[in-house]
Each structure stands twice: as structure tokens, then as C-alpha cells.
């Protein structure tokens, strides 16, 4: 694209109204409401073959392949600390089953790596044969982060050194089965946030 075209694009962008963040309350309910309403007996469309909510199965082989392809180094520790994180920008909130909630906060990047804190509360501890795993996007790939569990009080905090520009606003947490690695259920999802910690 030549310079005049770029300048024209800039002028057009200056007149464009802002993109608004979708209210957190709208994200999941609108999907669920759409499915529920459109597939109610009164609707004209056929009933879906399955109603899985957010659950989704995938193969462990796929997980490993994607993780290897992404080839990113991620260092993660899990602690039971909580509280504010000065200097960190809260970029996403997490919502999920029951009252489970949390947030993702990102600190100042150091080159290709940035510190990230994922704080979770009111997440039921996984049963003995299950565990949680956080997933995030980087370089166009979805990468499994770390396996963890919630404490007895439902709280946990993950400290991650992640690649910069990771799309945390679209991270998600799954509950996995030790006995059946291919079985997983999404239990929490991220939504963009404008808050600061």
C-alpha cells in the first residue's frame, strides 16, 4: 500500500467510533441464550444432536503436538498467595462454573517475556483423579500452561513467565482426568477487563 492510501486509511480511522468492550455479563449468556431459545420446542430449527455446554474433548496427542509446535518456554509456579499486584495491569477477568472467578494481570515485559499472575477464587478443588490446566494463546497457537489444583478454600494463584503479547483475554481453564487424558471440560474462561490491580 502506498503512502497516500495509508494516509487515507488513517483519516478514515480518525472518524471511526470507538470499539466498545462487550459487557462481561453478555459474553456467555448470549451464547447460552441463543442456543436455548433457538432450540426450544417452539423454534423452527431442529434440536441439536448434542448439548455439551462448554465441555469439549480433545486428544492428548493434539495437545502435545501444539505445545511442541509453539515452542515457547513458560515458567510457572503455583502458590496460595493472594492480594494486589502493584505495577501489574489487570487485562482479563475469569468467570466459570458456580461462583468461580478470577483475573489475569500482566506486569512489565522484559524482552520476549512478561510476568503474569492468574488469581482464582471459589474454584472447587478437583477430585482426586482430576486436575485443572490453564491454556493460553501465543503466536496463533493454543498452548497448555500448567496443571494445578485449587486449595481447600477454592483459591490459587499462578505466577507465569509468559511470552509477551500472549492473548490472555482468551485464555481458559479446563478440568482434566488423570485416567482419561483425552477428556476435558472447560470450567473457566477469560473476558477482557479494563481494571487495574
Amino acid at each position: 500500500m502506498n503512502e497516500p492510501d495509508l494516509q487515507a486509511l488513517e483519516r478514515r480511522l480518525h472518524t471511526l467510533p470507538p470499539l466498545l468492550d462487550v459487557p462481561q455479563s453478555l459474553v456467555a449468556p448470549s451464547v447460552q441464550a441463543a442456543v436455548a431459545e433457538a432450540d426450544s420446542p417452539a423454534a423452527t430449527r431442529p434440536v441439536p444432536r448434542r448439548a455439551r455446554g462448554w465441555s469439549r474433548r480433545w486428544s492428548l496427542a493434539g495437545v502435545v503436538a501444539i505445545a511442541a509446535a509453539a515452542a515457547v518456554a513458560v515458567t510457572i509456579t503455583v502458590t496460595s498467595q493472594s492480594g494486589g499486584h502493584p505495577g501489574f495491569q489487570r487485562i482479563a477477568t475469569l468467570t466459570g462454573a458456580g461462583n468461580a472467578s478470577g483475573y489475569v494481570a500482566v506486569g512489565r515485559a522484559d524482552g520476549a517475556v512478561e510476568p503474569v499472575v492468574v488469581s482464582i477464587s471459589q474454584l472447587d478443588p478437583a477430585p482426586g483423579d482430576q486436575y485443572y490446566e490453564i491454556w493460553f494463546k501465543t503466536g496463533g497457537h493454543d498452548v497448555p500452561g500448567v496443571a494445578f489444583n485449587a486449595g481447600a478454600n477454592g483459591a490459587t494463584e499462578l505466577h507465569i513467565s509468559a511470552p509477551t503479547n500472549t492473548k490472555w483475554e482468551r485464555c481458559w481453564i479446563t478440568r482434566q482426568s488423570i485416567r482419561d487424558p483425552g477428556a476435558s471440560t472447560i470450567v473457566m474462561r477469560a473476558n477482557p477487563s479494563q481494571q487495574s490491580t
Partner: peptide
């Protein structure tokens, strides 16, 4: 009637 596909479509265009 794939709900995951619908959720992905929603996430792309809802904003």
C-alpha cells in the same frame, strides 16, 4: 448445531 463453533463466531464478532 455446533455450540463451540458458535462460541468462536461470537467471540470474533460480538465486540
Amino acid at each position: 448445531r455446533d455450540q463451540v463453533a458458535f462460541e468462536e463466531f461470537f467471540s470474533r464478532y460480538s465486540r
